[in-house]
Every structure is written in C-alpha cells, then in structure tokens.
C-alpha cells in the first residue's frame, strides 16, 4: 500500500479548511445539547407527573435509536411534512438533541451530588429558591460536571462524520469527495484519522488540565 506524500500534502489544506466546519459543528451542537439538556433536566424534576414521564419517555426513545437514523429522519422525512432545513442546521440540531439526553443526566447527577443539608441550610438562612440555586447549589454542582461534559463534547466531535450522510461538507465528506474523484482513499482517510486524533488528544489534554484544577 503505497502512501503518496505529495498527494497528501496537496490535499491537506482542503482538509484543514473542512475541519473548521467540523469544529464549528461540534461547538454549535454542544451548545444546543447544553441548552436542551437543561430543559430536559428541569422537566425531569417537574412537579407534574405527565411532564416528567413525557420527557423521560422522549429521552429513552432518543437514546435507544441510532443517531444516523435520527439524522436521516430529520433530513429526508421531515421535508415530506413541509419542514425543510439546510444540512448544517439539520446536523447540529440532530446531534445536539441526541446528546442533550445524555447531558440532562449529567445535570441531574450533578445536582443530586449536592447534599440535601445544603438546601436545608439555605432555607434556614432564609435564601429564596433562585438565590439558593445560583449561590449555593450550582457552585457546588457545576465543577464536577465540567470534565464529564467536556468528554461528551469530545465524543460529539468524533460523531460529526455522521453529518456527511446528510450532505454536510465537513471533514469526512470533503475527504470522501477528494477520494472518489481520484479513487485514492489511503491518503485522504489517513489524514482524516490523524486530524481527528490530533484534535481529540489536544482536547483530552485540556480536559485533564481542567480536572486537575478542579480537584483541590
């Protein structure tokens, strides 16, 4: 299996350019997942059993079906009922919604890790609910969540190639296009793998740094 370094060098700039789309897709999807996840987590703590059960069912459904199927559904089935979205938007909504179900669980676990006595002390000191949440509960709940959330972001990053299947021209799709034009797969795919590896390693290193800071 010969590896053509000249060819690799010539396509690298295109691939690096495409990784910007991949990185952007990761950040946007992650932001969407953080926000939807928050609503899901709040919904799971709702006073109304119907809301709790509905949201629990929806998260189970999303977690138990493949991301690829969900993206196909959003991109190819929704237009049939008149909802058409551009590929990138479809991709980030799909990926974001999928991961929001996992992130809701991270929020829940984080909030539950704060002992009940902290709430009771807040009530006894006459804090209102929202002040107790923002000043006493969240500052204790959030730090342990950060490394977990960051690891989900890295996992999401590695899942972005599924967006190629709904025609988002991200890193994987760009490599695919180059490869199929020339019938040369070794160099583009190797480079894609290396770019993912490099970025994931850098991100993991970052997570470990943050983790080290949080553990006092």
């Amino acid at each position: 299996m010969p590896f053509d370094f000249e060819f690799a060098k010539s396509i690298l700039p295109h691939l690096l350019e495409a990784s910007v789309i991949t990185i952007a897709a990761t950040f946007v999807s992650f932001a969407i997942a953080l926000v939807i996840g928050l609503f899901l987590a709040l919904g799971l703590r709702s006073r109304f059993a119907l809301v709790r059960r509905g949201i629990w069912g929806a998260t189970q459904f999303i977690r138990s079906t493949p991301l690829l199927v969900q993206l196909y559904f959003l991109f190819f089935v929704l237009p049939e009922i008149g909802i058409t979205m551009p590929p990138f938007l479809t991709g980030v909504i799909g990926l974001g919604a999928h991961y929001s179900c996992y992130i809701a669980e991270v929020y829940r676990a984080g909030l539950e890790s704060v002992p009940k006595g902290q709430w009771e002390a807040a009530v006894a000191l006459n804090y209102g609910r929202s002040r107790a949440m923002t000043e006493i509960i969240l500052p204790q709940a959030i730090p342990p969540m950060i490394p977990v959330l960051a690891n989900y972001m890295i996992t999401m990053f590695k899942d972005t190639p599924v967006m190629a299947s709904i025609t988002v021209i991200e890193l994987m799709q760009t490599a695919n296009i180059i490869a199929s034009e020339r019938f040369l797969y070794v160099e583009p795919m190797t480079l894609v793998g290396l770019i993912f590896l490099a970025l994931s390693l850098v991100a993991s290193f970052g997570v470990r740094l943050i983790e080290g800071r949080l553990v006092r």
Binding site: A121, V123, A124
Partner: peptide, 19 residues
C-alpha cells in the same frame, strides 16, 4: 420569609457551604 427571619437553626451535620 418574614417568619423565618425570627428563627435561626444549627444542624447536626453543620451544613457549612464548602465553596
């Protein structure tokens, strides 16, 4: 809240805010 302001409480487990 007005009623609670007349009362203070100390717990078995201290419940200080660790942060």
């Amino acid at each position: 809240r007005r009623m609670r302001s007349k009362v203070g409480m100390v717990f078995q487990q201290f419940n200080l805010f660790p942060h």
